[in-house]
Each structure stands twice: as C-alpha cells, then as structure tokens.
C-alpha cells in the first residue's frame, strides 16, 4: 500500500519534471513567430469624395477594409479621426485629401485623392438670335439676298414681302388674306428658361381676321402637330388702322426643350409683321 503511494508519487514527480522540461524546451527551440499566421488582410485605405451641400462642403465616405483607426488630412490643415470624413473648405483651390487607415497591429495603408474646389458657374441662359428678324434683304450672311431665307419651311408656302407700311427698315412680312402663307424659324434656347418674344403687326381693317404668332416646343414636322406643340401664342386682331403697327410682347417658358420654333399664320385678312426680337425675361 505504502509502496503503491510511493510509486504514484514518483510517477507524479517524474510527470511534473517532464512537463517542466517540455516547457523549457519550447522556449529554447521554438522561434518567436512560428505557429502564428501572417496578417492576410492588412488594411487598405480608400474613400469616395462627394459634395454635400454647397460647393465648399465635402463628405468622404470611408471605403477602407480591415482597418480600425483612421486619420484624415483634408489638405487645408483640417484633420479628423472619424471613420467617415467631412470638411468645409474656406475657398476655391486644389486640395489633396489623405486617409491613413490602420489596424491594431500597427499596419497602415494610405490613400490620397486630389479634389478641386471650384465655385459652380451661374448657369447662363442662352439668348438665341432671330435671323432676318426685320425681313430685310441681304441681312443673312451667305444667304440668297432674299429677306425670307431664314423663314422658309417645307411645310407650307413662304409669306410675301411688303415695302409699305413697314415698322422699321424698308421691308416687312405680308400674309395675304387667303391665309395660305406661313413663316417658320427654329431657335436654339436653354431648357426651362423664360423669354419674351417681341414683334409688331398690323392688318387691313376688313374683313375680320387674325394673325397668330406661336412659339412651338421643338421642331415642327407636321402642321397638324402645331397646336399640341404650342408653348405660347398670341392672336392679333387689332384692325383699327391698317398702317399703324401694334407691339406684342409674347412671354414664354421654353420647357423641356432646347429648340423652339416661331410659327406665323393668318386667317381671312391681309396682315403685316415686322421687327422680331427676343430677350431673356427678368
């Protein structure tokens, strides 16, 4: 019995000794990093810059991977340690934004992007030029000399020219009473901009009739579509005096069009038209 205990004790002692030795042997022979794994996913820094408010206010969405700590340098002296960056620049300029992303092993990655802070230009409304606006001959460069070159369309017969009465210059457009003649011209405009089209008209005192000036959205390819394409129109019916021109200011909004067309037609009475002009509304 006693012997058994002794043997057990001896075995226990030997076991402990072996264990201690084995620990020691580890320290002696094992290399410090053996058995541990290399960091297979070191941090990669990345971000996307975008405007966030006015042109001076930027936000930077952090797209880094495997990182825990971030240092932002916005290039204007401002810094941050937030995950997502944001900065308000003092003024225009070129700035290099740098993100340093690091993990708890001390490994870091750096990513830089250059941003240009520029004040957006105030959108300029395009002011179109109406060609041969007064129907005068030889006013169109490289034209035939006829003051109606710019007003022709294959959709109908061109209006006539009159020399008296005119509003200004020596010629005006004339639309005979049968209403068969038309005038048409396309203009390049800014979309959704407000314009005022100004022109002068007069008509014979009888019979009753009218002259319609329409602004159409887009080019006209079929006279039947004129009504549905009309953005704005004015029907002139002032027959008080056949030689006094009446001014018309026709305001219109170009809508979702970068091209509009002026389209003139008359009904029943001989009419005259002169001196088109266009301006951007205030």
């Amino acid at each position: 019995m006693i012997q058994k205990i002794k043997i057990n004790k001896i075995i226990g002692f030997l076991g402990l000794l072996a264990l201690t030795l084995s620990f020691n042997s580890c320290e002696q022979f094992e290399l410090p990093e053996a058995g541990s794994m290399a960091d297979l996913t070191p941090p990669t820094a990345s971000f996307a810059a975008s405007l966030n408010g006015d042109y001076l206010t930027y936000k930077f969405d952090n797209l880094s991977a495997s990182a825990t700590d971030y240092v932002w340098d916005y290039g204007d002296g401002h810094t941050s340690t937030d995950k997502n960056g944001a900065n308000i620049y003092a003024g225009e300029g070129t700035y290099t934004v740098t993100l340093t992303a690091s993990d708890k092993l001390g490994v870091s990655s750096t990513y830089s992007e250059t941003i240009e802070v520029v004040k957006p230009p105030v959108p300029v409304v395009l002011l179109p030029e109406i060609l041969e606006a007064g129907f005068e001959d030889y006013t169109l460069e490289n034209g035939t000399g006829d003051g109606r070159d710019s007003w022709r369309t294959s959709l109908g017969e061109i209006m006539q020219i009159t020399s008296s009465p005119v509003y200004e210059g020596v010629q005006a457009a004339k639309f005979p009473s049968d209403g068969t003649r038309i005038a048409y011209q396309e203009l390049e405009v800014s979309a959704n901009a407000d314009y005022v089209l100004t022109y002068y008209y007069t008509m014979k005192t009888s019979p009753a009739g009218l002259i319609t000036v329409s602004v159409l959205g887009g080019a006209l390819t079929d006279l039947a579509n004129a009504a549905s394409q009309t953005i704005a129109s004015y029907v002139g019916t002032d027959q008080t005096d056949d030689s006094t021109y009446v001014q018309v200011d026709l305001p219109f909004n170009s809508g979702n069009n970068t091209k509009v067309a002026i389209y003139v037609r008359n009904e029943s009475v001989e009419c005259r038209l002169d001196a088109f002009s266009i301006r951007v509304a205030d």
């Binding site: 006015d54 957006p120 959108p123 959704n192 407000d194 305001p251 909004n253």
Partner: peptide, 11 residues
C-alpha cells in the same frame, strides 16, 4: 435638374 436653384416660371 440637380442644380441648387431655379427661377424658371414653369417650376
């Protein structure tokens, strides 16, 4: 259309 301001009469 993504801009900051419009004064278009139709808007």
């Amino acid at each position: 259309a993504g801009s900051d301001v419009t004064s278009s009469s139709s808007a």
